[in-house]
Design a protein around this nucleic acid. Structure first.
Lengths: 179, 179
DNA sequence: CGATACATGTAAGAAGTTACATGATTGT
DNA sequence: ACAATCATGTAACTTCTTACATGTATCG
């Protein structure tokens, strides 16, 4: 997953390992590693797979920077990941990954694909939420109070996702037509 | 982290590796592994550290079950984890772990500790949310639409957490006094 | 007899964590 | 001289994933 995060960031703008680390430490980009021991090996792997290409900048006197950019093969891999289908189980267990994908989506795959993603997201939530609520109803009585509250926290979170999705869908719909 | 999840579940009720796996597959317990290759080795590690103790049930004819229960040392480790202090960075990057902790909290550490947790959680959110909003304000204009929406999704999620926390605090306050 | 549920495990490989190592440049 | 910032990397260790291996009992 870190690999895809890097690929997505490099697609927005070529960068060095150091630059990427700073993005993870200094911005609210959902908890990715930030440690050199994760990022440099990940970049190396991407390079070995020819998804990115690194060029050493012997430039302005400082220690050499190695700036990476996404190759055509990297573009294709990124697009494939971003547009792969998903369902309720992914919403339940991999929400972070889905949001990461979404963050890159319109730049890489266009607004039509972004809208499709959102509709699929909404549908998956509408399938998942009832099963969560059912579980809660069935087991609430037999659970310790904090366990029940933790589950309710989850439900509330997914409800917030649903509201967000509907607003985001409106946003893309109103933006597509006028042009 | 899986180790603590197992410890918490075993504290509620002694169980076998198989039982624990089912809990992860069949309930909405936030994405833990469910695979035997993760759970059995994790149980072994807990046993090696003497935090749990396994007893083979040669019982009723089926293949042998190994039922684990938490030792006094395990209880202590669990309590320590559950009650360790946390701040805004934890809320930002380890929300799942915090919710897992909360789910076990009142059974293991009591209602007073649970209330302290919630107040600390609320305080951490109140510190973190403004920095998120500031970041959003500063960078929104220069971000692609889906990137901005993904960030807004995060903000909305944390706002929902805040509301939940305040309701949960009320719940524990009204339950403590009457007795 | 084959599928399914019960039940525990291992082996190979991938990836992350922590900590260390290195080295240049700029500011004090 | 020394600290901070820029910049890249490795090594040891831990843990998770995927896939396989094994074995019993029940149901149709």
């Amino acid at each position: 997953m870190l690999g895809y995060a890097l690929l997505g960031l490099l697609h927005q703008k070529p960068a060095s390992g150091y630059d990427l680390r700073k993005i993870f430490t200094e911005t609210p980009m959902a908890g990715y590693s930030d440690s050199p021991g994760a990022i440099y090996p990940a970049l190396r792997r991407l390079e070995d797979q020819k998804l990115v290409h690194g060029t050493v900048e012997s430039a302005s006197g400082l220690r050499q920077r190695k700036v990476f950019s996404v190759t055509p093969a990297g573009m294709a891999a990124l697009k494939k990941w971003l547009t792969s289908p998903f369902g309720p189980e992914d919403v339940a267990r991999r929400l972070n990954e889905l949001m990461l994908r979404f963050a890159f989506l319109d730049q890489v795959a266009g607004e039509a694909a972004t809208l499709r993603f959102l509709q699929s997201f909404e549908a998956a939530l509408n399938l998942y939420l009832p099963t969560l609520r059912e579980f809660l109803e069935k087991h609430a009585a037999s659970m310790p109070a904090s366990g029940r509250l933790a589950l309710e926290n989850g439900t509330l979170g997914y409800e917030a996702q649903l509201q967000w999705a509907s607003r985001a869908i409106d946003f893309y719909k109103n933006r597509e037509k006028p042009r």
